[in-house]
């Protein structure tokens, strides 16, 4: 997200491309690639029908071309004007560590959501999150994490009757199978 600053871009008296404008140029470029790929894919794979009976590809092709257009607009706007400008602040040091660890915890939560089941997965996630965000008190984290994880899960599963994955505790699960 932080490309090499194109030195010498200050010609014609324009202010230097700051990180926000560079970021938007990158976003626009990605959008452009998406638009080109999407239009091509639609052209090749989706039926177009006839003018009388237009097929499923007509509108998406239009949208793909529009995507190309707004991406070019985004690039141009960031390149030539400073309507949106400034520096992007990404977290550093301790904060960066917190953000990354929480992102990993969240991804683990959803990866193992179904096999572990609502109760187990949310309790483990809560405990992990408390270690990352909260104090280092072992007991406190485990107790709070378990209480909140079980509380939220029970509210949905038992009280609202939402059918969430039961995983290990379900009737065919590793643990649940012993009790059902």
């Amino acid at each position: 997200m932080s490309p090499q600053s194109p030195t010498g871009s200050t010609r014609a008296g324009r202010p230097a491309l700051d990180s926000k404008r560079r970021g938007r140029i990158i976003a626009g470029t990605l959008g452009l690639l998406l638009g080109v790929w999407f239009s091509w894919y639609t052209w090749v794979n989706v039926p177009f029908g006839t003018q009388e009976r237009p097929g499923a590809g007509v509108f998406p092709l239009f949208v793909g071309l529009l995507m190309i257009a707004v991406s070019l607009l985004t690039i141009a706007e960031a390149w030539f004007t400073d309507q949106v400008s400034g520096e992007i602040n990404f977290p550093k040091g301790e904060k960066l560590r917190t953000v990354l660890l929480m992102a990993v915890a969240l991804i683990l939560l959803i990866t193992f959501y179904q096999p572990l089941g609502q109760y187990v997965a949310s309790v483990l996630f809560m405990i992990a999150a408390l270690f990352v965000l909260g104090t280092r008190s072992w007991v406190r984290n485990v107790v709070y994490g378990t209480a909140i994880g079980v509380g939220i899960s029970a509210f949905f599963v038992e009280l609202l009757g939402v059918r969430l994955p039961m995983g290990l505790l379900g009737p065919t699960g590793l643990i649940g199978g012993l009790f059902w």
């Binding site: 939560l109 959501y113 909260g134």
Partner: peptide, 17 residues
């Protein structure tokens, strides 16, 4: 530290359900 992960868990439930 309690609210944020709690909301994440609820958001996952909401998305799934």
């Amino acid at each position: 530290s309690l609210l944020m992960p709690g909301i994440m868990v609820i958001a996952v439930i909401g998305a799934y359900s």
